[in-house]
């Protein structure tokens, strides 16, 4: 009894302590309500209306799915750009991540002038911003003059849909910009690589493993989570960068003076865009998400078996106790007579 009381008191003390956590997190809770969740609901509400702003009042004219039909049927640019965006992201993100990993591995090796190379490869982190990139692209600083992308596009157009071919063609044309997107990713990979236990490599080398095997069997499994992290980061970065023409389109629609556009129209666009971005992130999660390796699977199986055994044991114990109780009861009501060592058997 005393122990039980003490445990309860201890728990409540811990709980009281933990309640202080709310105080620390409070600003964020307010912020997320104010700037994320409520606006999210509001824009969901907006997208079913045509919103007209006059100096006197803001008119909400319900249009049902009118905004969507408007976007999909009468504004050919948005769906087109959306498809291009999807292909571009799906093609470019793996390239960026692989490049970042490659560069990080080279920087992590034993090389001279490491500091100098790091200086160069992190430079884009500082510079990359929408207007700067747009400026550089428009002046032709972003493509290598020797590459003729039109040939590539034409060659691939024969057996791939045009949008796919074009996004791959853009890829070659914009190689430098793609490389420039991989600054933060290199940083993350580099620090992940430095955390890999060097004794693992030593052990592998003792057993005669080559560098190639070490990469696939040690490096890659260790940094698997960071590949996912980098992929997600890249998707988000590309979705919010001003080089992305979709978000510019949404902003323009927001302030467009025409009758059918406006806040409602832009909200509908933004929602579709958000769903697409979320789906792409989800796709990478599914592709790169942590599949448990063999050891984990076996361990989990064993744990499950142990638990089952325990449950069975518990069941048997309970049944025994129940039987004992029942027997006791029956004996008390003297339905059965047991031999107690006195008198006749």
């Amino acid at each position: 009894m005393a122990e039980k009381l003490r445990r309860k008191k201890k728990k409540s003390l811990q709980e009281r302590e933990d309640r202080m956590g709310y105080l620390f997190v409070l600003p964020w809770i307010i912020g997320v309500l104010l700037f994320v969740l409520i606006p999210l609901g509001q824009s969901f509400y907006y997208m079913w209306f045509n919103i007209r702003i006059t100096p006197l009042e803001t008119k909400f004219i319900p249009v049902g799915t009118g905004n969507f039909t408007q976007i999909w049927l009468e504004n050919p640019e948005f769906p087109q750009q959306l498809v291009t965006y999807i292909w571009q992201t799906i093609v470019e993100v793996p390239i960026i991540v692989v490049f970042a990993l490659l560069i990080a591995m080279m920087l992590n090796g034993k090389i001279k002038a490491k500091g100098f190379f790091r200086l160069i490869f992190f430079l884009p982190v500082i510079i990359v911003s929408g207007p700067v990139m747009n400026m550089l692209v428009s002046e032709g600083a972003s493509n290598i003059p020797a590459m003729n992308t039109q040939v590539v596009i034409n060659a691939m157009d024969t057996f791939l849909p045009y949008s796919v071919a074009r996004s791959i063609g853009d890829l070659f044309g914009n190689m430098i910009m793609i490389l420039w997107y991989s600054g933060v990713q290199i940083l993350i990979f580099l620090s992940a690589l430095q955390k890999v236990d060097p004794s693992l490599y030593e052990a592998a080398k003792m057993d005669g493993g080559s560098g190639w095997e070490c990469f696939w069997k040690i490096t890659l499994p260790t940094i698997k989570n960071f590949i996912l992290l980098n992929a997600v980061y890249t998707v988000i970065f590309m979705s919010g960068n001003e080089q992305n023409s979709l978000i510019v389109m949404i902003k323009n629609a927001m302030f467009s003076g025409t009758k059918e556009k406006g806040y409602g129209y832009a909200s509908a666009m933004a929602w579709m865009y958000a769903i697409v971005v979320t789906l792409i992130v989800l796709l990478f999660f599914l592709l790169l998400g942590s599949k448990k390796d063999v050891y984990d699977r076996i361990a989990a199986k064993r744990r499950r078996a142990l638990k089952k055994e325990e449950r069975n044991l518990e069941k048997v114990r309970r049944r025994n106790a129940r039987n004992v109780r029942r027997l006791e009861k029956a004996r008390k009501s003297s339905r059965y007579k047991t031999y107690d060592g006195h008198g006749d058997y």
Binding site: V25, W28, I29, V32, L34, F35, V36, L37, I38, P39, L40, Q42, S43, Y46, V232, I236, S239, G240, I247, I250, K251, M254, Y263, A266, S267, M269, A270, W271, Y273, A274, V277, T278, V281
Partner: peptide, 23 residues
């Protein structure tokens, strides 16, 4: 809350931009 935190990172700011602008 941690889940919402991640979600708010993934969510493009364009969705919340219009009501926030109005706010």
């Amino acid at each position: 809350m941690m889940g919402i935190l991640l979600f708010s990172y993934i969510l493009p700011s364009q969705v919340t931009m219009i009501p926030t602008y109005v706010l």
